[in-house]
Design a binder for these strands. Structure first.
Lengths: 194, 194
DNA sequence: GTCTATACGTGGATAGAC
DNA sequence: GTCTATCCACGTATAGAC
């Protein structure tokens, strides 16, 4: 793509983040150079520093944006725990399937965050997990679920659902609807729902 | 540790692999330099090349050793599918909990393998997954399990079980026995066993 | 078998011209 | 806002002395 020199305010910034996202997910943060990101965008390496103070901020901003977006799309709705659990399973699988790169980075690049950044991302993740734990506790209290240790079950369910991203491909043997149905069946049984 | 110059045949080799294992798991393959591994062992970088042709081989050998050890410790035993499934769950959790570094590398560093090495590791992983799938198919055929899609259930169970490694710590709130019991309870229910 | 020294490429980040 | 040029640290890997 031929590119002309000039002003691209408001265009290059997002393209930098998108290129970083793709490359970090594909090769890993440590294996991606600023030059590689610049090449993907179609600029020279120096130009990147108009959009990020450094490489670490690029990683952190991607992870924070992903986690915050995840949290804004969920809610602490009240109501039938069984319905809420089913909605959670469906939402989690679909949301993650739609954003494989973001999910991959959020899980794989935690150790490449500087300590302060790591703490902030972990807090966001904990907030998300708490939403599922809340559903399980409510269901257990209402006698709808048989869950002896909601914390463990929360982690087990999230690990199971997130695992879909390691193998699911659009156009494969199963549609996303079928995948959601299969996992909902397993989750429902695992929590002892009728 | 003061170290003298001299011969260490049969000693330094394992220490190199152990140092690489620890550092790769902690910081990631791409972020670990040969100098860092050498420093951990207590030798100069050049000396490492007496034990490995290059950094890539170091990674591949660690992953292959882990997967092959995993496979030698499992079997295609016949018998009651419910018993075999319970044994699988217990084995998987305990084996992985005992080797957090190996497990972490085996799951996180796949993308840093050269194509040929990647293919070989993936084949080993597939062999392991097939063992669980076989148990589920046998159980479904015998009417002991209600599993509509054994492939999906296999992947879901393995993801769930392997997830234990992200949070389990010796001396924490739960013992490993308790963790195994909790997960077995979930798996048993999820496959629809009585 | 390990050391020191080094070749040579690439890394993140900055300066200053345009 | 982007480019070119550059600084300097660090990367893998090798050569040759001991």
């Amino acid at each position: 793509m031929a590119r002309t020199t000039g002003s691209h305010a408001g265009i290059t910034g997002p393209r930098v983040r998108q290129a970083a996202l793709r490359l970090f997910a594909q090769r890993g943060y440590a294996a991606v150079s600023m030059r590689a990101i610049a090449a993907e965008v179609g600029v020279q390496a120096g130009a990147l520093y108009n959009y990020t103070p450094d490489k670490q901020s690029l990683l952190f901003d991607l992870m924070r944006a992903h986690m915050e977006d995840l949290l804004t799309q969920t809610s602490d709705a009240q109501g039938d725990p069984l319905v809420r659990l089913k909605d959670f399973v469906s939402f989690h699988i679909r949301y993650h399937a739609d954003r494989p790169d973001e999910v991959f980075i959020a899980y794989m690049e935690l150790r490449n965050l500087e300590p302060e950044n790591f703490t902030r991302i972990e807090a966001l993740r904990r907030t998300y997990e708490d939403q599922l734990e809340r559903i399980l506790c409510d269901g257990a209290a209402a006698g709808v679920f048989r869950v002896s240790d909601p914390k463990i079950v929360t982690l087990a369910i999230i690990a199971m659902l997130t695992g879909v991203n390691t193998w699911f491909r659009e156009g494969g043997r199963l549609s996303l609807d079928e995948v959601v149905a299969q996992y909902w069946d397993m989750v429902r049984k695992a929590v002892g729902a009728a």
